[in-house]
């Protein structure tokens, strides 16, 4: 008896696991390891100089700043949308519910050119903002708008099931004990959805950091101002600076893995909280 696997009468474990590991290795793990091996060609000083060059740092600032802002907006409005979808009835609700996933389903390039068209100075929304001095397309604000769009479903879809599971009795009990509606929300509902909300926020943030397609059309891509990190990787690639591109990619990968870890912990927290309830 190996301790690796518990006995089971079902067949096919070695075949299924073997195929899974082979496929993952060939498609994902070995190619991903290429980035780290390629970067190893650089000395630590060279690597550090590459990933902290002013233009690169400016791109980090934009990517992380805009991703954070977009994820925060999505946390607030995602919670609101999830609440409205779970608790209230209004005409067209099912259509709205289905539409939430549009950013998942719509190719990012389509989203990119469309948002640009809307928020350009002569666009449907842009034309009302320009007189106010607010320019969105071709500015860092445009990056924020695109990242808000693609991150929108994450918070809604993680919070929705948790809100659905809250027993009405809980809120009734709070009300009977004299809590106002706002107190009930603050003390009962919000703490319950907090793990899911944080998870959704982290997912939206992680997605935004790596996003490329929807951003490049609306960003304007001015070095130091509106250039995101993924675009910088492509720019370096186009200049055949493979090592430089890879060094930046490694930084992004490390950050993605860290976020993945955090998200896993958050999801564990979420499950834990819900199983206790």
């Amino acid at each position: 008896m190996s301790t690796f696997k518990q006995y089971s009468v079902l067949p096919g474990f070695s075949l299924a696991l073997g195929f899974t590991l082979l496929y993952l290795s060939l498609i994902v793990l070995i190619p991903l390891s290429a980035t780290f091996i390629q970067t190893a060609e650089l000395s630590w000083q060279e690597f550090w100089a590459t990933v902290t060059a002013p233009r690169v740092v400016a791109s980090y600032r934009l990517t992380f700043g805009a991703s954070l802002a977009a994820a925060l907006v999505n946390a607030v409005f995602g919670l609101l949308v999830a609440w409205v979808l779970v608790r209230y009835r209004f005409p067209g609700k099912r259509f709205v519910d289905a539409l939430i996933d549009l950013p998942f389903a719509l190719p990012t390039a389509v989203a990119g050119i469309t948002l640009t068209a809307i928020y350009a100075g002569n666009g449907w929304i842009g034309q009302y903002l320009e007189p106010l001095g607010v320019k969105i397309a071709y500015t860092p604000l445009g990056v924020f708008v695109a990242l808000t769009f693609i991150g929108l479903p994450f918070v809604v879809r993680t919070v929705q099931p948790v809100l659905e599971d809250i027993e009405p009795e809980l809120e009734e009990a709070a009300a009977m004990l004299g809590a106002t509606r706002l107190q009930t929300f603050q003390r009962i509902i919000f703490p319950t959805v907090l793990p899911a909300l944080t998870t959704g926020f982290a997912l939206a943030f992680a997605r935004a950091i790596g996003e490329y397609g929807s951003v490049i059309f609306i960003a304007g891509n001015m070095p130091m101002i509106s250039e995101i990190t993924p675009l910088l990787i492509i720019t370096k690639l186009e200049q055949y600076d493979y090592t430089g591109a890879t060094a930046i990619a490694v930084v992004m990968l490390v950050i993605s893995f860290a976020l993945l870890l955090i998200i896993n912990v958050l999801q564990w927290w979420n499950r834990h909280r819900n199983s206790l309830a």
Binding site: T20, L24, V28, L29, I30, P31, L32, A34, T35, Q38, A206, I209, G210, E211, Y212, G213, P230, L231, I233, I234, L237, Y242, A245, T246, A249, M252, L253, S256, F257, L259, L260, I263
Partner: peptide, 20 residues
């Protein structure tokens, strides 16, 4: 590990194949 590709930027996903 199966979820990993979701957290990798699409640009990096392309890059790794260029590297290989």
């Amino acid at each position: 590990l199966i979820d990993l590709p979701f957290s990798v930027s699409p640009v990096v996903a392309g890059l790794i194949y260029v590297l290989v």
